[in-house]
Computed example of a mutant assay.
Amino acid sequence: MAPTLEQRAQGALIGAYVGDALALGPHWYYDLDALRRDYGDWIDGYTDPRPDRYHAGLRAGQSGQAGFILDLLAQSLDACGGYDEADFCRRLDEDFFPLLDGTPMNGPGGYTSQSIRETWRLRVGQGLPWGRVAGLADTTEAAERILALAVRYARQPADLARHCAANTALTQRDTTVMAMTVAYGCVLGSLVRGEPLDAATSDRLMALVRSGALPFHSVTSAGEDTPPPGPEAPRTAGQFPSPDALLTVSGILRAARDPDIRIEPAWKASLVYGMPCAVYHQFPAAYYLAGRFQDDFESAVLHAVNGGGQNQARAMLTGALCGAIGGIQAIPARFIEPLEHGAQRLERAGRLARQAAAQA
């Protein structure tokens, strides 16, 4: 039986938390030989971080900082009944920033990303207002939290894109990073709505672009969409210059299903697409693993983890996609039961799903 919208929404959120926690111990090993020496040939569950590594002092099943921030946004959505930027920013100011000191190896989750450190420096150190504290980090930092918005607004694609763009802009201002982040949110929202992840995903999203629902610019369509000769019309605030971030996913899905294109074992997707933190490495790998293991949540996230490098983001993004495809029932209980705050997060995910389902 196909999962319900509520089950898909719960699967997306819990899948993200699971991916984040699974990579807590083996996070940021760029030397894969060292990864295998420390954790064996195949990591298949939660692990403690080593005392000389990132996240030292945390325990298996706990979240990194991405999970902490995702909690803050999910809690805000739950309390407010929808996205309230002022409420979310207040939570960052009151419940998160006082726990930081501006250095990397500090803060909830044991490590603070470049993106958050820059925002903290401008917001706390210089006292600048929200709207003037975003930095140029090219990571998936914002994507790791806006996935909650993609779940909440899955049935309202225009609002989904608008809120994801606004939330991303709080901490990241590179327009390419923003476009790829919002595109990921659009893909995830489509899966929560119940659409398949397939070679036509980009076509369905492009139809929303042409209708004006998504803020991506397209000038290559024939007929009425073709602009007249001369300068193009000015963009409005929040529009992205091209739809390429939406087109990426279907090309990768075709590759994942093409028998002539094989990445074996699948964890080597990290070597093909790149192990670093930047969005142009992380999103393609997540799309590939989710597309290849659509009916196998466990294989998808474990291959994401075992690929090393920035495996925490890779596993988190992959876990959200596969959780949305299969629903919460696709996530093994052995991943949910030991997850820190697992019961509360599952209940909150259910409430956000019901909010989403109530929207036309």
Results as ranks from 00 to 15, higher is better:
2 A>W: 03
3 P>Y: 10
4 T>M: 09
5 L>W: 03
6 E>I: 12
6 E>K: 11
8 R>F: 05
10 Q>A: 04
23 A>N: 04
27 H>T: 04
27 H>R: 13
27 H>M: 05
29 Y>D: 08
30 Y>E: 08
31 D>T: 12
31 D>L: 12
34 A>G: 11
35 L>R: 08
36 R>Q: 15
41 D>F: 08
42 W>S: 13
48 D>M: 14
52 D>K: 09
53 R>M: 15
55 H>T: 08
59 R>I: 03
62 Q>G: 04
63 S>T: 09
65 Q>R: 12
66 A>H: 13
67 G>T: 02
67 G>R: 03
70 L>V: 04
70 L>E: 09
71 D>G: 12
73 L>C: 05
73 L>N: 04
74 A>T: 13
75 Q>S: 11
83 Y>V: 05
89 C>K: 12
89 C>Y: 01
90 R>N: 10
91 R>Q: 04
96 F>E: 04
98 P>M: 06
107 G>V: 04
108 P>V: 08
109 G>F: 06
110 G>N: 08
112 T>F: 06
117 R>F: 09
124 V>K: 01
124 V>T: 09
127 G>R: 03
127 G>T: 03
128 L>S: 07
129 P>C: 07
134 A>R: 00
139 T>C: 01
143 A>Y: 00
144 E>M: 09
146 I>T: 07
149 L>M: 07
154 A>G: 05
158 A>E: 15
159 D>P: 05
161 A>K: 01
164 C>E: 00
165 A>W: 00
165 A>D: 00
168 T>H: 04
170 L>V: 11
172 Q>N: 14
173 R>W: 07
180 M>N: 09
180 M>R: 15
181 T>F: 00
188 L>E: 00
188 L>I: 05
192 V>D: 05
201 T>V: 01
202 S>T: 02
206 M>K: 03
209 V>Y: 06
214 L>K: 00
219 V>W: 07
220 T>W: 14
220 T>Y: 14
225 D>G: 14
225 D>W: 15
236 T>R: 14
237 A>H: 09
237 A>I: 04
238 G>E: 03
243 P>D: 11
246 L>Q: 06
247 L>F: 11
253 L>M: 11
253 L>I: 13
254 R>F: 00
254 R>L: 10
254 R>N: 07
255 A>W: 01
257 R>W: 10
259 P>K: 01
262 R>N: 12
269 A>Y: 01
270 S>Q: 08
271 L>N: 01
273 Y>F: 15
275 M>D: 05
280 Y>K: 14
281 H>W: 06
286 A>L: 09
288 Y>P: 05
290 A>V: 02
296 D>N: 14
297 F>G: 03
297 F>I: 12
299 S>A: 13
301 V>L: 09
304 A>P: 05
315 A>V: 03
316 M>C: 14
317 L>T: 01
318 T>W: 02
318 T>C: 10
319 G>T: 07
321 L>G: 07
324 A>S: 10
329 Q>I: 02
332 P>K: 05
341 H>C: 10
341 H>E: 14
348 R>A: 08
351 R>A: 15
354 R>K: 14
354 R>G: 07
355 Q>G: 10
356 A>H: 02
357 A>H: 11
358 A>G: 13
